Computed example of a mutant assay.
Amino acid sequence: MRVLETFGTDRTVQTASEIGRRARLPSSTAHRMVADIVECGRLERDEDQRVRLGMRLWELALRGSHALRLRQAALPFMERAQARLREHTQLAVLENSEALFVERLSRPKAGANITRIAGRLPLHASSSGLVLLAHGPQKLQEHVLTKPLEAVSSHTATGPAQLRRLLADIRRNGVVVAPGSVESVSTGIAVPVREQRDHVITALSVVLPRDAPTGPAVEELRAAATGTAAALRAQRP
């Protein structure tokens, strides 16, 4: 796991020596482990003998994956919302106190957006993260709100009192509109998707240019959330 976790969204190809340094393994151990993992298909080598995650690992990860189930349920409704809004449309889940993005639909001329599939953002900064935090366990909220929080942009909410008010508003209104929270030129909008009445399983969001009207996006997201929730219920045996 230490070898595999050296890979990231911005570090997709490495040498065995680089993996060893990042995994804090002796060089000989790292080279031997990498060779073993390549042999069983979880890693692959490119033409320069650098190493990347293998297709076999991707195949295994998708089998019975919770994320795959969510994506299958949400994708038709995300596609409809993205076609109408023509901006980034995203699906995120709560993972280890962060928002993990499991799907993203975009267009070439859509506005600025730093998120990507399999990328993460802090819960307090992104619109999706705020929705997941607002509906998350009380223990999680206290964990996040009682530690110093980094401002991703000049508009990121970081004060505990400010965040508590914001989370209460999200629970009351069922939506968050977060202008400039991640990037000053963008507005994130997110809504919860409930598999059961009191259980939020994922968050749907769009990223708009900062000066774009938000009303149509809120309506599209709410419709997409309703459709996704119904599709998830239909998947149950």
Rank of each mutant, 00 (worst) to 15 (best):
F77C: 02
D36C: 02
Q82V: 05
T228G: 00
A35I: 07
T9L: 01
L53I: 08
V191Q: 03
V185K: 02
V38K: 02
R197L: 03
P216D: 05
A224S: 13
E195D: 05
T89W: 06
S181K: 00
G174M: 12
R233L: 05
A168W: 11
L100R: 15
H135R: 02
D36G: 02
L166R: 04
V131W: 09
S186D: 05
I19L: 08
R56C: 07
V185I: 02
E59A: 04
D169K: 11
V218T: 12
R69W: 01
D10S: 09
Q141F: 06
E219P: 00
Q235V: 13
A203L: 10
G215W: 00
A73Q: 06
T12V: 10
P26C: 00
V152K: 01
H31Q: 01
L68R: 15
E44Y: 08
S28F: 08
H155A: 09
A223M: 14
T228I: 09
T214S: 09
L53H: 05
V175W: 07
T158N: 04
P237S: 06
E44Q: 13
H66P: 14
T158E: 04
L204E: 03
V93R: 11
N96V: 08
H124W: 03
A125M: 12
L121A: 05
A157N: 00
A157Y: 14
V93K: 06
R50I: 14
A67C: 01
H143K: 15
V200T: 11
